[in-house]
Amino acid sequence: MWVTADRESCISGGRCMAATSEVFDQDDEGLVVVLTPRPAPDQEERARKAAFLCPARAIQIDAGPPAG
């Protein structure tokens, strides 16, 4: 699993961080920061929940590494 976030889409809701602070944080402006792009197996379910809960849909979950 690979986790990425579109910081330009982020609206600083903080739900991602609340779902799994091991994978997500917020910077000084309140925008999402991905701490762990490849979550451990025991963190994957919470990372998926964070993506689901994001009101801006700024979090992407992919099977492989991001392109580019």
Rank of each mutant, 00 (worst) to 15 (best):
A56I: 02
R15A: 13
A51E: 00
S21Y: 14
A40T: 05
A67L: 10
F52I: 07
R46F: 09
T36S: 11
A18F: 06
G13I: 11
D27C: 11
D6Y: 13
A50K: 05
M1K: 15
R15Q: 12
Q43T: 04
V33S: 00
A19T: 01
S9R: 15
A19C: 04
Q60P: 12
E22I: 08
Q60S: 07
R46C: 09
V34K: 00
F52A: 15
E29H: 14
W2H: 09
E45V: 10
L35K: 07
T36K: 13
M17E: 07
E45M: 10
D27K: 09
G64L: 04
E45R: 11
C54K: 01
A5Y: 04
R7L: 13
P65S: 07
E8R: 14
P41F: 04
Q43V: 06
R46V: 07
T36R: 08
R57S: 14
D42W: 12
C54A: 06
I59V: 05
M1Q: 12
G64D: 05
I11K: 10
T4M: 01
V33H: 00
F52T: 06
I61R: 06
E45Q: 12
A63M: 07
G68Q: 02
A47I: 01
P41H: 03
P55T: 00
G64S: 06
D6H: 12
D6T: 14
E29A: 13
Q26N: 09
K49A: 06
G68W: 03
Q60G: 10
P66T: 03
G68N: 02
P65T: 06
F52V: 08
A51V: 00
C16Q: 03
R7E: 11
G64H: 09
E44Y: 11
T4E: 02
Q26H: 09
I61V: 01
P65E: 02
G13E: 05
F52Y: 12
A5L: 06
E8L: 14
E45W: 14
R48Q: 05
A40Y: 08
E22F: 08
E22G: 15
L31F: 15
S9H: 14
L31G: 13
M17N: 13
M17K: 11
V23L: 03
S12T: 14
C54S: 05
G14E: 07
G68D: 02
I61T: 00
D62L: 08
Q26C: 08
A47R: 03
E44P: 08
M1V: 11
E8P: 14
M17W: 15
L35M: 07
D42P: 13
P39F: 05
D42A: 13
